[in-house]
């Protein structure tokens, strides 16, 4: 059974099917992730785009089974990594997967690194946990990682503490830690928001290079469509806990289907054009504990119809690999 499944999903490092993560709070059930599905191949980068509170970070935490409890719980779906369902694994088995097969880069390198240990020590930790190597080999491995992340003079850096490095260098160290056990999947959650423009460009390029060298699957969580344009192969746009549109990066940028995607793209100021006013989406992002029935975007949508307020639209395929959940397209099919 298992081998059959593996054959079918060959090439897919990660498959997420109908993932649901809810938070049970005093004010009601918050459906932070509500039926999210996507897959990811080797060497591919998926951009998970959306505004704060749309569920993109919770989706990633759910893949690693790190949803903050006791309020948050994964209530349904499957997360299949190399043919294995992660949601049915024991906590002990998950610990062997985190940091080894799946690793993560977080937003703020100052918080991700422990200020009282040297860089070398912190980079060696996952290697020591997941691989049985001699002390000398661990150290060699750490230096190799520092070199991979283009950190100059690794012999010196290895003995330094986080506060002695700049933000960009610290984020490279975090990247090195994430990659030290040759993971299959790397989740980068807004890795460059705290970095300066030029440092951000360097870091993104470096990440891309390393990814190609190691043939990694990567999920890039971001709110910035510029980052998506620069590093992603495919894009999933999230709104209020659901993926509203998913497709190849060029499809999304040049032929966006969902009104929300169109609006996001339109609201960006562009360097090469002269505009007086920007296209805007009226209203505020919705509050997840009081979502309207039907499509969550309906209250802000310029093309809203009667049915949008009553029923959530089914997914419709526009082109191979490009799909969206919007009545505009569902209607066309029917």
């Amino acid at each position: 059974m298992k081998s059959v499944e593996q054959k079918i999903s060959s090439g897919n490092v990660l498959e997420v099917k109908d993932l649901k993560t809810y938070f049970f709070t005093g004010r009601g059930v918050v459906k932070a992730v509500d039926g999210v599905s996507f897959e990811l191949k080797e060497g591919e980068t998926l951009g998970l785009v959306g505004e704060s509170g749309c569920g993109k970070t919770i989706t990633c935490l759910s893949i690693l089974r790190l949803v903050p409890g006791p309020a948050g719980r994964i209530v349904g779906g499957e997360v299949i990594l190399d043919g294995d369902d992660l949601l049915s694994k024991s906590e002990k088995a998950m610990r062997r997967i985190r940091g080894k097969k799946v690793s993560m880069i977080l937003q703020d390198p100052m918080v991700s690194l422990n200020p009282v240990f040297t860089i070398g020590n912190q980079m060696a930790e996952p290697v020591r946990i997941h691989q049985k190597l001699s002390r000398r080999l661990v150290w060699e491995k750490v230096k190799e990682m520092l070199r991979l992340m283009s950190i100059p003079s690794p012999e010196i850096r290895i003995r330094e503490y986080p506060h002695q490095m700049s933000g960009g260098m610290r984020q490279r160290v975090v990247g090195g830690i994430a990659l030290s056990c040759q993971p299959r999947l790397l989740i980068a959650d807004e890795p460059t928001t705290s970095l300066d423009v030029t440092i951000q460009a360097q870091y993104l390029r470096l990440l891309k290079e390393v990814q190609q060298k190691e043939n990694l699957a990567m999920i890039m969580v971001t709110h910035d469509l510029g980052i998506v344009a620069k590093v992603c192969d495919r894009v999933a746009v999230m709104y209020a806990g659901k993926i509203v549109e998913c497709g190849d990066v060029r499809e999304i940028f040049y032929r966006p289907a969902h009104p929300y995607t169109k609006a996001l793209l339109g609201s960006l100021p562009k360097m090469e054009e002269r505009q007086e006013k920007l296209y805007t989406i009226e209203g505020q992002p919705p509050e997840l504990h009081a979502l309207p029935p039907g499509c969550s975007f309906a209250p802000r949508c310029p093309d809203v119809q009667e049915i949008c307020k009553q029923e959530y639209p089914p997914q419709s395929i526009i082109k191979d690999g490009h799909c969206t959940s919007c009545w505009l397209f569902a209607a066309r099919k029917a």
Partner: peptide
């Protein structure tokens, strides 16, 4: 260098990135 590091507005925008050494 600063302009070359700005993020592209679409996937096919090719810009030569000028990288200044050091920080």
């Amino acid at each position: 260098a600063l302009l070359s590091a700005a993020l592209p507005s679409h996937p096919d925008e090719q810009r030569e990135e000028i990288v200044l050494p050091g920080e």
